[in-house]
């Protein structure tokens, strides 16, 4: 099976910032992404959990993009402008995809 090189960008960010991030990504020309709920975790800001959240203030989401390597830089710039002051993690990993024309 023919596969193609791509980058997988995963941004874990506060749920209240989700709309702003996805807007920025769309503005940077990203045509597809997936938003996933996150159950809980721990980091520099302490432990947190989705359980018992009375608002979206304390929750986190993961936004995942699969993108061609040459398009990753504008995506990261757009994402950084949104997440810079906020709790979260941005990671980029190499991956391979089928059907390259979709990315």
């Amino acid at each position: 099976m023919q596969t193609h090189k791509a980058k997988r960008v995963e941004i874990i960010i506060e749920a209240v910032m989700e709309g702003r991030l996805t807007e920025a990504l769309t503005g940077a020309g990203v045509t597809g992404f997936t938003v996933l709920p996150v159950s809980g975790g721990s980091g520099r800001s302490g432990q947190w959990s989705r359980e018992g959240q009375v608002s979206r203030a304390g929750g986190m989401v993961a936004v995942v993009c699969l993108i061609r390597p040459e398009r990753v830089e504008p995506l990261l710039e757009a994402a950084f402008a949104v997440v810079e002051r906020h709790i979260g993690v941005v990671s980029v990993t190499d991956c391979e995809v089928l059907r390259a024309e979709r990315f």
């Binding site: 506060e14 209240v16 702003r20 608002s55 979206r56 203030a57 304390g58 906020h86």
Partner: peptide
Amino acid sequence: YIAVPAAMRVALPEANPA
């Protein structure tokens, strides 16, 4: 503890939510 925490996370992310 519903409306304001969400607003503070956006407007004042430096403030400690705990």
